[in-house]
Computed example of a mutant assay.
Amino acid sequence: MYRVDVAYSLITNEEQDKVLIVRNIHSSSWSLPGGAVEVDESWSSAAIREAREETGIEVELLGISAVNECFFEDKGEHVIFVTFKAKLKSTDIMITRPHEIAVVKWVGLDEADQKMPYYKHGIRKLIESDVIPYDFQGKQTIKTYNSLK
């Protein structure tokens, strides 16, 4: 399997009752701003870069809030997802990559949990907790190896 590292920024408003999420144009699913770590790039640099590229805002990272891992067998990928808590340094949201990002919006924590169910214990827990949860999300596959023969 091919290893892919992905870095996300968990960006909340000052009251910490809303979170900034994005929807990619090629998907109906939502995520936190983030993406693949490039060659010779750190997880933290990738999180900052991806937040800026996807939302137009600058962030300051406060630390890791979650680590998730998943095997996407149909893609042959072993993905490590690292989510950082982030603080806004600028507030002007702008889609700077319309060829990649369809929507950027603030949502309440309950809506964030509905749109991003892969955070097993919920977004609120990531915001409030000092403990860094780790979840192995198992094998994600659409096809079995037998069906590929």
Rank of each mutant, 00 (worst) to 15 (best):
79 V>H: 06
80 I>H: 09
141 T>F: 05
25 I>Y: 05
133 P>F: 04
63 G>S: 09
15 E>A: 15
42 S>H: 11
70 C>E: 15
112 A>E: 02
86 A>M: 10
72 F>D: 03
126 L>V: 01
31 S>L: 04
137 Q>K: 06
124 R>A: 08
52 R>T: 11
138 G>N: 04
78 H>I: 12
97 R>L: 12
21 I>Q: 03
96 T>I: 10
36 A>I: 06
110 D>Y: 04
35 G>H: 04
64 I>K: 05
41 E>C: 09
48 I>Q: 07
110 D>L: 04
77 E>I: 07
41 E>M: 12
69 E>P: 12
114 Q>N: 08
68 N>W: 15
111 E>Y: 02
18 K>F: 01
107 V>K: 01
75 K>R: 15
23 R>G: 10
62 L>W: 10
106 W>A: 10
89 K>L: 07
87 K>L: 13
137 Q>G: 05
56 G>E: 08
28 S>C: 03
133 P>I: 02
93 I>D: 01
109 L>S: 01
65 S>P: 13
23 R>E: 10
81 F>I: 15
139 K>N: 09
59 V>A: 09
54 E>V: 13
101 I>W: 08
69 E>S: 15
68 N>K: 07
41 E>S: 12
84 F>D: 05
59 V>M: 07
99 H>I: 09
60 E>S: 10
56 G>S: 06
111 E>Q: 07
133 P>T: 00
120 K>T: 11
122 G>Q: 03
64 I>F: 01
99 H>Q: 06
66 A>Y: 05
80 I>V: 07
123 I>R: 01
76 G>A: 11
138 G>V: 02
92 D>N: 06
53 E>L: 11
129 S>V: 06
120 K>G: 00
136 F>S: 06
94 M>W: 13
43 W>G: 05
55 T>G: 12
15 E>K: 15
100 E>L: 12
137 Q>A: 00
114 Q>I: 07
30 W>L: 11
73 E>L: 05
111 E>H: 01
119 Y>P: 00
87 K>Q: 08
114 Q>H: 04
82 V>K: 13
73 E>M: 14
60 E>P: 13
115 K>W: 12
28 S>W: 14
124 R>C: 01
100 E>T: 03
57 I>M: 14
51 A>M: 07
58 E>C: 11
96 T>Q: 14
30 W>M: 07
118 Y>H: 09
104 V>H: 08
41 E>K: 13
26 H>S: 12
